[in-house]
């Protein structure tokens, strides 16, 4: 647990060197920008060309959104430089966990509720569509 501890109220008051303020460099911003545009366009083109079957496209564009999230976290928000402040990362990860629980939990629960409230005719349709029956 001691590792969790940050050096709170540290006495370090040396003047910030060029990079210490955590704003990165023009290079990192440009890389991030180019990568983001590439990912956006790729997802866009994927959807415009129906060259893949739908589930594949769906998974691919979601993956690309997540990749772009990481790209921006690193190149725009410079989280790689946050090693000095683990709490920024910890709350970010916690946020990710909470969001996953709330979003996927809600979707799971609501899907389950809807499924159990289908009328007999709807159930049949649902099963034909989703369960190959």
């Amino acid at each position: 647990m001691a590792q969790l501890d940050d050096k709170h109220q540290s006495q370090d008051s040396q003047p910030d060197s060029a990079d210490a303020a955590g704003h990165g460099s023009i290079r990192s911003y440009t890389i991030g920008f180019v990568l983001s545009i590439a990912l956006t366009l790729e997802a866009f083109i994927l959807v415009l060309n129906h060259s893949f079957s739908h589930p594949v496209v769906l998974v691919l564009i979601l993956i690309m959104a997540v990749v772009q999230l990481l790209v921006q976290l690193f190149f725009f928000l410079h989280l790689d430089r946050a090693a000095k402040a683990p709490w920024n990362i910890i709350v970010l990860l916690c946020m990710g966990v909470v969001i996953s629980i709330v979003v996927f939990g809600s979707l799971w629960i609501m899907q389950n509720l809807n499924y159990h409230m289908l009328s007999p005719a709807e159930t049949e349709k649902y099963m034909q569509k989703n369960e190959d029956l």
Binding site: V97, V102, G105, I109, H116, M117
Partner: peptide, 14 residues
């Protein structure tokens, strides 16, 4: 964060 459904067990989930 992972127990909230116990407030509505009877709502119709499986």
């Amino acid at each position: 964060f992972v127990v909230w459904l116990h407030h509505f067990f009877t709502m119709g989930a499986g």
